[in-house]
Design a protein around this nucleic acid. Structure first.
Lengths: 195, 195
DNA sequence: TTTATATTTGACTGTTTAGTCTATAATGGA
DNA sequence: TCCATTATAGACTAAACAGTCAAATATAAA
């Protein structure tokens, strides 16, 4: 009994990613959120709690979504290099899309908050560990499959490199107006696997 | 005639980099600045103008200082690969230093402001162009000197890649607690030049 | 119809914000 | 000494801030 939820909470959460991504956590006012989410103030507090709660929820939602997809892809049998290449082309495509790129920028706001938010810090630490394992295992498999030269003797370093390269593309997207640059960077990054 | 300036304005500017880097632009209150700079409120306004003015001045000062050093190194005759290697080891060393790393983080705050500050956006655009030219020319020279394999057929992409890799190390420093990771990433990045 | 939940609206609070103003003291050259 | 400049201190303003509260309406199931 009782009235049903009218707005799609997951969809509103994605809008929150855009707003926080655009203004940054501190730079986002409650009014910005109300305008961006299209819901009333009280609905926001009833559904998501405080501004900080909403931010944390949105960040975790975003990261889990993305990390989940990446790990699922890396765990799928087949060419590892093609998978990694696909992961990078995907993020470049998203960043080149004027609409889809927006929510990616919540990553930057989240990283800014890490030094001031132990909960977020711990969350990212665990996210990095998940990604590290997944990339590392995939690279080991790549070498076993003969896809990756044996000259790569430190696959953990290579895994960490790829993880941060992926995150840094979002930063590069803010620094450059030319979308082609992102593809260039991505291609050079991937070329590391080729020799 | 008249009293002389008592505080070193350049030194105070470096402290401002630390404060803005730590809290972000929006997250920095005037009180944070007063505590961090160790000068009185009125002195701040008399010397640097508004909070935004101080931020812009600090960012430009930081970027010009760093870019200037990098370009000077790249323009110096000798082994290009050794120079680039030195540039990366330098930034890693700074980021691993608990004290010296702090002012680097103003970069992140500045990048966050680019979408909302046309002046800063234009400034970074020109900074990127300066760096692009310097890295590109250096890589051309490296190939002429036989330091760099001819398989690298797109030296502009490679230049862009190196520039963003350098900037992204600062971001990586926020995401990882293990300082060794930065060195790992840096080494893999530099390995791109070796094959 | 009753009851429980969802949503909106607008008023409200107490705090914090950036920035200004005034007064006072300190410093250095003329 | 006189004057210009620098610095500090504290009071002050007007706006913006996050968050709360109460009242009214809307929806859905019992």
């Amino acid at each position: 009994m009782g009235r049903n939820k009218e707005f799609d909470t997951a969809l509103v959460l994605h809008k929150a990613m855009e707003v926080f991504g655009h203004y940054g956590y501190e730079g986002t006012s409650l009014q910005n959120l109300l305008d961006g989410l299209g819901i009333a103030r009280q609905s926001l507090y009833d559904t998501y709690g405080t501004k900080r709660d909403l931010f944390t929820t949105a960040v975790k939602h975003y990261v889990n979504e993305k990390t989940g997809m990446v790990i699922a892809m890396l765990d799928t049998p087949g060419s590892v290099k093609e998978t990694i290449s696909h992961i990078f082309h995907e993020i470049v495509a998203v960043l080149q899309d004027e609409i889809r790129c927006k929510e990616c920028f919540i990553m930057q706001s989240a990283i800014d908050q890490i030094p001031h938010d132990p909960v977020l810090a711990e969350f990212f630490k665990q996210d990095m560990q998940r990604l590290e394992k997944a990339f590392h295992n995939a690279l080991i498999r790549a070498q076993e499959q003969g896809e990756l030269s044996n000259r790569h003797d430190d696959l953990l370093s290579l895994a960490r490199y790829l993880i941060h390269a992926r995150y840094s593309l979002t930063q590069a997207a803010k620094l450059t107006t030319d979308p082609k640059v992102l593809a260039d960077i991505s291609n050079v990054t991937l070329s590391t696997l080729d020799y």
